[in-house]
Structures are given as C-alpha cells and as structure tokens.
C-alpha cells in the first residue's frame, strides 16, 4: 500500500471517467435535462393520439424543439398532451399541432406548425388547432369497406 501520488491521480481520473460515463448516459441518452425557468409548457388536445408516448419528440419543420412530458385524459374524453418546448422558441397563438409517424412503422411525434399571429403562446396555454394521429388499421379498414361497398353496387 504505497502512498504514491500517481496512483491517487489515476484513481481520480478513473472516478472522473466513470461519472462522465454516467452523465453521458443520463443527460445525452436518457434525456435528463435541466430546463431551468426557460421551458415553455403548452397543452394540446387530441381525439386520438395513437401510440404517442411521453418523451416523444416535438418538432418544428423537422427540427427537434422539445418533447412530450405528460399525457392525460380530460373530462371530454380527449387526450390532453403536455409539451415542453425550448424556452426561447416563440410559438404564435394560431399554431397547430399534429401527430405524425416517422416512417411507416416508426415512432410517433408531434409536429408544431407555427401560425402567422403576432401574439405568442405562454406557458400553460393550449395549442388551438390539432390534428389527431392516423391509425393505419382504421385507414385500411375504411379502404377495404369502401372497395367492398363498390363491388356490391
């Protein structure tokens, strides 16, 4: 058990490396973020959210600007989705939110389309226009129904 300062340095470096790895896993991959006071929280109500889950991405024009933090059911049986977007992003009052799917079978995400209004949404506000998720099975069901109906006539 020699008291060598080199060994202390190596142990210190090892501990730093370990904590860096944990921090990388937590922050970069795990999505642990310190949003501070700047995060803008919005809600949006959808009739159908499909497979949308918390931590789904929120994008504007394909660029990630935030994520879904919570999904609840409101008293009208609509899904109330809480979004957290970048604090320094100004979202106009007449923006719309739609649930889209990345690829055919990919993850679902929310696309915000900014409107043209000069007034901006504040934390706690609701995004007024929404478009629900498209459920592929229902779409196919309708398609089959329509074709079936056409044959009968």
């Amino acid at each position: 058990m020699s008291k060598s300062p080199v060994r202390d340095l190596i142990v210190g470096l090892f501990v730093i490396a370990g904590f860096t790895a944990i921090a990388y896993l937590s922050v970069s991959l795990g999505g642990l973020t310190y949003t501070g006071p700047g995060g803008l929280f919005l809600t949006a109500k959808f009739d159908e959210i499909g497979g949308l889950a918390p931590r789904a991405q929120v994008v504007v024009g394909g660029v990630k600007v935030g994520q879904v933090t919570a999904i609840d059911l409101d008293e009208d049986y609509r899904a109330e989705v809480t979004l957290e977007v970048n604090g320094n992003l100004a979202v106009p009052e007449d923006s719309s939110a739609s649930i889209l799917t990345a690829g055919v079978l990919g993850d679902q995400y929310i696309a915000l389309e900014p409107g043209g209004s000069d007034a901006m949404l504040q934390t706690g506000d609701e995004v007024p226009y929404t478009q629900s998720a498209i459920i592929l099975e229902r779409l196919i069901g309708k398609l089959v129904q329509n074709f079936g109906g056409g044959d009968d006539e």
């Binding site: 944990i22 896993l25 937590s26 970069s28 991959l29 795990g30 999505g31 642990l32 931590r55 991405q57 993850d107």
Partner: peptide
C-alpha cells in the same frame, strides 16, 4: 434510436 428509447427515470 438511442436517445429516443432510453429514459433516465426507468432505464438509467
């Protein structure tokens, strides 16, 4: 894929 699937509270 990594960032989207790993959750801090559950996984990490």
């Amino acid at each position: 894929g990594l960032e989207g699937s790993i959750k801090f509270s559950d996984d990490v």
